[in-house]
């Protein structure tokens, strides 16, 4: 009769589990499912407050689609670099794995740089978290996403410098896989944010003066 092995923490060999998925990987996916609700709440808040700002600046006055398209592209390519890093790590090619890992971190930093410049430009144009609902919801949503990217960059750099000194082990490959899952998740959140807030939401604010005026009259 085939019986499942039950060893737990037995001398570094990864225990077989009921589901055949390692504990850490399952934890990561449950965390990502949970994080869906986290970003979902922020995006829903943004959407509930679409076109509800009482004063400008409005999205169509500040959003810069060409620049953000470039940063979106950078983040997308960092995802590709991440998957390549993992792929080479799984094939025991530590040098290439480390190269792509550093590339991911670098692309992540470029993305963050774009975001910092974007935020500073917006503030110069009069959009702050205090200014209106658009400013509040936009900065906090993209700011929390940026925070996730920043955490990811720290994680990746930490792994690139601390974990990959010696030979690759199945454990450190799995570490890399966890970081990769997190990184790709951050990327897909940005896919949603870019489409919903930048591309679809860009026209928000055209002719908003009259609309908010009307709302004020109705008492909406």
């Amino acid at each position: 009769m085939a019986q499942a092995a039950v060893t737990q923490n037995q001398h570094g060999h990864i225990a077989d589990t009921n589901t055949g998925i390692s504990n850490r990987k399952l934890l990561m996916w449950v965390f990502l499912a949970s994080d869906c609700l986290f970003f979902g709440s922020f995006i829903a808040t943004y959407l509930v407050y679409r076109n509800e700002s009482l004063v400008g600046p409005y999205p169509n006055e500040v959003l810069n689609i060409p620049v953000t398209s470039v940063s979106t592209f950078v983040l997308l390519m960092s995802s590709l670099a991440m998957v390549l890093a993992l792929n080479y790590a799984q094939k025991d090619r530590a040098g290439l794995a480390r190269f792509w890992l550093l590339a991911v971190a670098a692309l992540g930093l470029v993305f963050l740089g774009f975001q910092v410049v974007e935020f500073m430009t917006f503030v110069d144009e009069g959009l702050t978290i205090h200014q209106n609902l658009f400013g509040t919801t936009f900065f906090i949503l993209t700011g929390f996403h940026g925070l996730h990217v920043f955490v990811g960059v720290l994680w990746l750099l930490g792994m690139a410098f601390a974990h990959f000194k010696g030979a690759l082990t199945s454990r450190s490959t799995e570490d890399l896989e966890m970081a990769g899952l997190y990184w790709h998740f951050v990327d897909i959140v940005w896919i949603v944010i870019f489409t919903v807030i930048y591309l679809i939401g860009f026209s928000d604010g055209e002719g908003i003066e009259t609309i908010s005026h009307a709302t004020a009259i109705i008492g909406g």
Binding site: T45, Y49, S53, I129, L133, G135, T136, I140
Partner: peptide, 20 residues
């Protein structure tokens, strides 16, 4: 954030909606 950084999430004066 509303309380410490004066954002507008639940501030009706800026159009915020307590129902949210």
């Amino acid at each position: 954030l509303d309380r410490v950084w004066d954002t507008n999430f639940f501030n009706p004066a800026a159009g915020g909606d307590p129902v949210l």
